[in-house]
């Protein structure tokens, strides 16, 4: 019962993270989802992953989100989403229904206690060694991404790029026109 109520609270927090009007609120709800997920993982016996999820998911990622939101600002986007909200909601509900229909009947399995579980160190370092190499590469690319995040940022443009280009072109045309007119006056 406790586990089920935790799952329900996690889902409510996830909905709030999507529905929140401000980005900063959304990121805080996401941090709560991460924390609740780590509690769930702990209750399922995955102690190592629970601790890492709590420190990385609820800690590091939230700090990065707050940092990035501070840099980009929290301007709302006025235009409506590409698929209308009712269509998005319908598709999401259909997705949930189909996934549940596919997965839940097959989930009634007896616990396979005959499998001998190997220690974590052996599984991680010997069986899943290639995963660790991939993780090293990913962390390296993450460092490069962080450098991009921290790179010097120019001031935001006033309008879109297209209007910027148009205004520059108009300035150039005016300069050429005045040059032409002054040339005509000197020839007279």
């Amino acid at each position: 019962m406790l586990l089920f109520s935790l799952v329900v609270v996690t889902l409510i927090c996830a909905v709030q993270a999507i529905r929140a009007k401000q980005l900063i609120t959304s990121s805080l709800w996401l941090a709560l989802v991460s924390a609740l997920c780590s509690v769930l993982l702990f209750m399922y016996g995955a102690h190592l992953v629970a601790v890492i999820e709590l420190s990385v998911g609820a800690g590091l990622v939230t700090v990065l989100f707050v940092f990035a939101i501070n840099m980009v600002g929290d301007d709302p986007i006025e235009t409506k989403p590409v698929p209308p909200r009712w269509l998005g909601m319908g598709l999401a509900l259909l997705f949930i229904f189909l996934l549940g229909w596919y997965v839940l009947p097959g989930s009634i399995v007896s616990s396979a206690s005959a499998v001998v579980e190997q220690p974590m160190s052996e599984v991680l370092w010997q069986q899943r060694g290639i995963d660790l190499v991939v993780q090293v590469v990913l962390i390296f690319s993450g460092v490069l991404g962080l450098l991009g995040l921290l790179a010097e940022v120019k001031a935001p443009l006033e309008g879109s790029v297209a209007s910027e280009v148009l205004s520059r072109r108009e300035d150039e045309m005016k300069a050429m026109e005045s040059q032409y007119l002054s040339g005509q006056e000197t020839s007279r």
């Binding site: 016996g45 998911g57 499998v115 974590m120 991680l124």
Partner: peptide, 18 residues
């Protein structure tokens, strides 16, 4: 957990987190 291989699931979840 249901397959009795929590550690295998943990190692995969670790990669996913990264």
């Amino acid at each position: 957990q249901v397959n009795g291989q929590v550690n295998l699931g943990q190692s995969m979840a670790l990669t996913v987190i990264v």
